Amino acid sequence: MKKLFLVAALIGLSPIFAQENTEITPDNSWLKVGLTAGVPVGDASDASSFALGADIRGQYLFNPNVGVGIASGYTNYFGKDGVDDFGIVPLAGFFRYYFTPSGLFLGVDLGYGFLTNVDYYDTSTGKVESNDGGLYVNPQIGYHNRDWNIYAYYQNTFADNDLNVSNVGVGVTYNIRFN
C-alpha cells in the first residue's frame, strides 16, 4: 500500500517537472548541500540516541515562491546499548513554498528511504531478514536567504514490518548556484 501511495504521489507531481521552455540560470536553479542533526523518536529512539546526516538537493524555482527538486543524502543513527549504527539513504522529490525572497519557507520531501544495517526477526520463517526501507516523508519549516537555509524537520521512513525510523531535528544547507 505504501508503494502504491508513493507511485501515485510521484505521478501526481509529474506535471510540475514536465514544464516546457525552462531555462536553468543561477537565479532559478542551484545545488543545496548541508548537514542535519536530530534526536530519534518512536521506534528509532529504542536503538539510537542521536542522528547526524548529510543533505544534498537540486532545486528549480518556477517563480520566486515555488521550488521543486530532488533530494538525497545519508542520515546515520548512532546505536546505543550495544546496537550497531544504522542509517537511511533517501531518494525523494521535494516541494518548497517561499513566502518572501528572504524569510519563512515550508517544504516537504516525499520518496523512498533505503535503510542500511536494519534487520528484523521474521516469525513466519524463523529467520533474521534485512529491512530494505519504505515510504520517506520529511516536512520542514525554516528560514532562507539567497545563500543559506536553516530549518527544523521531522524525518520518517515507514519501513516494512511496522517499523518507523524517525527523528526530529535541525538542518542547514548552503546554496551553490549553477552557471
Rank of each mutant, 00 (worst) to 15 (best):
L106R: 04
D119E: 15
G133L: 03
G169K: 12
Y77W: 07
F50C: 10
Y154S: 12
D122C: 12
V168S: 05
G113E: 05
W148H: 05
F62C: 01
K80E: 14
Y120C: 12
L110R: 02
V7C: 11
A8N: 12
H144Y: 04
D122H: 07
I141S: 03
R177C: 00
H144V: 09
T36D: 12
D122K: 02
D85T: 08
Y143K: 07
T157W: 04
K127A: 07
G53A: 03
N65M: 06
P40V: 04
H144A: 02
D43C: 01
F86M: 05
T123K: 11
N145S: 01
G134E: 13
G67M: 01
D43F: 00
T75G: 07
Y120L: 10
V39C: 00
L31K: 08
N145E: 00
Y112I: 06
T173D: 02
G87V: 00
W30T: 03
S14C: 14
D27C: 01
L115K: 00
R57M: 03
T100H: 00
N164E: 13
I70K: 05
A44D: 05
K3F: 12
R57D: 02
A9V: 14
A37I: 13
K32W: 04
W30K: 03
V170S: 00
L91K: 05
I11V: 14
L52W: 15
D109R: 12
L104A: 13
G67F: 04
G126K: 07
G171D: 10
G134L: 11
G103F: 09
D81Q: 08
V172T: 15
L61T: 05
L61E: 03
A159Y: 03
K127I: 02
V39W: 01
I24H: 06
N149V: 06
L135S: 11
D162P: 06
K3D: 15
E23R: 06
P15I: 00
G67D: 00
Y143V: 10
G134W: 07
F105I: 09
S14H: 06
N76T: 13
I56T: 14
F99E: 10
V7W: 04
V33Q: 00
V170R: 03
V137M: 03
E129T: 10
D132V: 06
L110H: 07
N28I: 09
E23I: 14
F62D: 05
G169P: 09
S72V: 13
I16E: 13
Y97Q: 09
